Computed example of a mutant assay.
Amino acid sequence: MKALVHVEKSGMEGLSYREIVERKPGAGEVSVKLKTAGLNHRDLFVLQRHQPGEPPLIIGSDGAGVIDFVGDKVVGVEVGDEVIINPGLGWDEKSDAPPAEFDIIGHPGHGTFAEKIIVPIENVEIKPEHLSWEEAGVLSLAALTAYRALFTRGQVQPGMKVFIPGIGSGVATFLLQFAKAAGAIVYVTSRSKEKCVRAMELGAYKAIDSNEDWEQALDGEKMDLVIESVGAATFNQSIKQLRKGGTIVTFGASAGDVVQFNLRDFFYGQYNLLGSTMGSREEYKEMLKFISDHKIHPVMDQMFPLEQYPEAFKRLEEARQLGKIGFTISE
């Protein structure tokens, strides 16, 4: 089968679209013939983490397709079922933190940027009917990350003021849609006027320029909950927008992972700081039900044929996207 494989060199230079040997599913596994897949910032990180000398790796964590083969001891699905991939491995029940054995599809094991993928039966769910193939293929990693950060960790409630810096990413657009559907009042930032306009169309109450003074732009309003995924570049500004006793949930550090902040101001403000990651299978099922109940669709940026992967990666690296970038996979 053909796949996007990383080998020999670190970074983009090690990527190539080529033939790779296909294996058959074992006991408890299914083979999924993929129709679409989603590109995430994680894929950029994997290109640096997967080092020369390691076995060839098919990258990619998100995908959707049709089951074309089932291994022994597989029940509940059949050949021909339309499914969506849950990227999380080894985390079944909702918990304070993932178990030690938790991994994500696409590193260290093979991922979704291929004609087919073999996964444990626990990692496929029936594709929500209201989603197109393009939408289903880009959904899982970003939507599950957003769901856990907002609901499990952030405990969002109707009427809460929720602040989301950096609205361009796939996770941030899910956060906006989820928070709005939950009855929260959503505020966002972006350096892009176009992204601010689109955020308002998606239901944001206010969208401000990231380059402005945030406190001034918000007219002194304070937030109940901040979902922070940018990192060091915005972290201290994000804390300043919290009300006394408010909560900040962080799961990303694309703009720096080392932060200094005033500890005395923090404890006098009675703030709550929570870390988050992707999420469990239990939360994945909850997320799929939530998007089905509210008929939520991913915000789609652009789809590329998998063979045109350099253009897609460049768009993500340059942060030109609004929402999700995905791949269509040839027959």
Rank of each mutant, 00 (worst) to 15 (best):
S95D: 14
S95Y: 15
S95W: 14
D96N: 13
D96C: 14
A97I: 14
F102V: 13
D103G: 15
D103K: 15
I104E: 02
I105G: 02
I105V: 07
G106W: 15
H107C: 15
H107S: 14
P108C: 12
P108H: 13
G109Y: 15
G111C: 13
T112I: 09
F113S: 10
F113H: 11
A114C: 10
A114K: 10
A114T: 10
A114M: 11
K116F: 15
K116D: 14
K116Y: 15
I117N: 00
I118N: 11
V119K: 07
V119W: 09
N123C: 01
V124I: 05
I126Q: 07
I126T: 09
K127I: 12
K127W: 13
P128E: 00
P128R: 02
P128K: 01
E129C: 08
H130R: 13
H130M: 14
H130P: 12
L131G: 03
W133L: 08
W133H: 05
W133N: 04
W133F: 09
E135G: 01
E135I: 02
G137Y: 03
V138E: 02
V138G: 02
L139Y: 07
S140N: 07
S140V: 04
L141W: 08
L141Y: 10
L144I: 10
T145M: 08
T145Q: 06
A146D: 04
Y147T: 09
Y147E: 06
R148M: 05
R148I: 07
R148H: 07
A149M: 11
L150E: 03
L150S: 06
F151T: 05
F151M: 09
T152C: 11
R153Q: 10
R153G: 04
R153I: 08
R153L: 08
Q155W: 02
Q157A: 05
P158M: 00
P158N: 02
P158S: 02
G159I: 02
M160S: 02
V162M: 01
V162F: 01
I164N: 00
G166T: 11
G166L: 11
I167W: 09
I167G: 06
G168S: 14
G168H: 10
S169K: 07
V171W: 11
A172G: 08
T173N: 04
T173D: 05
T173Y: 07
F174Q: 03
F178C: 00
K180L: 03
A182F: 01
A182W: 00
G183E: 06
I185C: 06
V186N: 00
V186L: 02
Y187Q: 08
Y187D: 04
V188S: 02
T189I: 03
T189M: 03
R191D: 08
R191Y: 13
S192L: 07
S192V: 08
K193Q: 11
E194Y: 14
K195Q: 10
C196P: 08
R198I: 08
R198V: 09
A199C: 07
A199K: 04
A199Q: 01
M200W: 12
L202G: 10
Y205G: 06
K206S: 04
A207C: 03
I208A: 00
D209L: 00
D209W: 06
D209E: 04
S210P: 01
N211F: 11
E212I: 03
E212A: 09
W214F: 08
W214S: 03
E215D: 15
E215S: 15
Q216K: 12
Q216H: 10
A217T: 06
A217M: 06
L218E: 09
L218Y: 13
G220E: 13
G220S: 13
E221C: 14
E221S: 14
